[in-house]
Amino acid sequence: MKESIPLTWRKIPDRYRLIGSLCKNCNGYYFPARHVCPKCRRKGRIESYQFSGRGRVFSFTEIHAAPAGFEDQIPYVMAIVELAEGARCTGEIVDVLGKDVQIGDEVEMVFRKIQSNDPEGLIHYGFKFKKVKR
């Protein structure tokens, strides 16, 4: 499958730096970025916002049947992370197995390779999370 270069390029800010949106009207945080605030609609004042990258595990699962391109990484942990500002996003938790993770664990963003299987294609980088040690 030929990859979409514009699509990859367009997602660089949110994948590399967790850039989402903040509605200045209702103080709602969104990730991925939105053009319209779903609560305030036309009254919303949406701005670009860079998340701190800190958050907590809201839910997680250990992947054993991976989608194409991720087979050599199993088992790995995917989580829904509730970011400190309130928005939730999906991301991998690196350097752990499911037994090492609990709901509520503190995590922070790390920058990793997401996919690079095509030896002649682009290397896709982006955010993942790692557990913050106590």
């Binding site: 050599d72 990484q73 991998e92 690196v94 350097d95 790390v110 920058f111 990793r112 390779k113 997401i114 290397i123 980088y125 993942k128």
Partner: peptide, 13 residues
């Protein structure tokens, strides 16, 4: 490095 790390990701950290 883990399989999802390379010289670029190490540099960023």
């Amino acid at each position: 490095a883990s399989s999802d790390e390379d010289a670029a990701t190490l540099a960023v950290e």
